[in-house]
Amino acid sequence: MMRILLFLGTNLAVIVVASITLRLLGVEGYLRGQGINFNALLIFCFIVGMAGSMISLFISKWMAKRSTGTVVIETPSNATEKWLLDTVAELSRDAGIKTPEVGIFPAQQSNAFATGWNKNDALVAVSAGLLNRMRPEEVRAVLAHEIGHVANGDMVTLALIQGVVNTFVMFFARVVAHLVDSFLKSRTDGAGLGFMGYFAVVIVAEIVFGIIASAIVAWFSRFREYRADAAGAQLAGSGAMINALARLKAETQMPDQMPDTLRAMAITKGQTKSLMERLFASHPPLDDRIRALKEAAYR
């Protein structure tokens, strides 16, 4: 129920922001009697596409805490929590960023994520399972990986890329619908697609272009994982980072308890087999990540 409410709330916010912005910019509707206004269409798609991505980014910490059940450590209640806070503070200082909020979420699978709208207002969280089964140096390496995401500005960059991709998916879907409508009008004495037909074509085209766009976003997501691994190796040591990834690989058969909205941020994803799985995976295979770290260590 919470996910449904968040989805509806986000989309309502997008509609409100887009409507106000378009009115302030004096942008009229992109469909006119004489054809399509491509400038107005591009502005419309950019505002709606970016608004959804940016709103999701700004509420990412709030969503993450509620969807994963993360409890932020305000005052440590035991030695483990104190060690977590001290370790994240040390790694953040070494990475040159403000110390993020630190939390623990109740999942038995070893996992961790980082999120937040900028590198000085972030959240780093680890699962209870990770703390229970990993050695301290391995936990430190996982934390360093997540700090690497924050320091690299991956959350912001991914949101911007998603916003641009959303823009062009919406734009080209409507161009395709307009072309189909114009073609049918030329063959049917002006009947065309009609209102419902036009939006049916838009939806189908958005699905097709959305699949292609997802592959682009997934490619960048995989690229940033290699960068975060490299940052983790630099902050915590190559050996510790490699051992942590090997430990995560051994647990990939456990049920994935991360919400869909945070799977791209979870460190354990990436055990894909088929070409299609690899194409749309948010994380590279853990074997490839381990290999990249070993190759970098021997250079």
Rank of each mutant, 00 (worst) to 15 (best):
E81R: 09
Q34L: 10
I47V: 14
A89Q: 07
Q34Y: 13
Q34P: 01
G69A: 13
G33Q: 15
G33K: 14
L57S: 00
I36F: 09
W62Y: 12
F58C: 13
V48N: 11
K61R: 14
M63R: 12
C45Y: 04
W83C: 01
I55R: 01
R66N: 11
D86G: 05
C45K: 03
S53P: 00
L91P: 04
M63G: 13
I73C: 11
N37L: 07
F38W: 01
P76T: 02
M54K: 01
I47W: 01
P76R: 08
G69L: 04
I55D: 02
S60G: 09
A40I: 02
K61C: 07
A79W: 03
L91I: 04
M50N: 08
A89F: 03
R66F: 12
L85Y: 09
M63H: 01
S53L: 12
S60W: 12
G33F: 14
R66M: 10
L42G: 06
I59G: 02
V72G: 03
K65Q: 08
W83G: 03
A79V: 06
E74C: 08
T87C: 13
T75M: 05
N37I: 08
L41M: 10
A89E: 10
G69I: 09
F58G: 03
L57F: 12
G33E: 15
V48L: 04
L85E: 08
G69C: 05
E74Y: 05
L84I: 11
I36S: 01
W62F: 11
L84A: 07
V88A: 13
T68Y: 02
G35P: 11
G69Y: 03
I43D: 00
I36M: 15
L91Y: 08
K82F: 04
L57W: 07
V48C: 07
S77D: 10
L91H: 02
I73Q: 01
M50P: 00
T87I: 13
K65A: 06
V88F: 07
L41D: 13
S60N: 12
A79M: 04
F46I: 07
I55C: 05
V71W: 00
G33W: 15
L42N: 04
T75H: 10
K61G: 03
L57C: 02
S67P: 00
S56H: 11
I36C: 06
F38C: 08
M63E: 05
S56N: 15
T68N: 03
M54N: 00
T70E: 04
Q34E: 15
C45D: 07
A40E: 07
P76H: 02
F38Y: 15
I59C: 05
M63C: 10
L57T: 04
G35L: 14
M50Q: 06
K82N: 07
P76C: 06
T75I: 14
E90Y: 09
K65P: 01
E90A: 15
T87D: 09
E90W: 06
N37A: 15
P76S: 05
F58N: 04
R66S: 03
I36V: 15
K65T: 15
E90L: 11
L57I: 11
T75C: 06
F58Y: 13
W62K: 11
W83N: 08
W83S: 10
G69T: 11
A79L: 05
G35A: 14
C45T: 15
F46T: 07
A51Y: 03
W83Q: 09
F58S: 03
M50F: 14
E74H: 10
S60A: 13
Q34W: 14
G33S: 15
A40S: 14
E90I: 06
A40K: 01
Q34S: 14
D86L: 07
L91V: 04
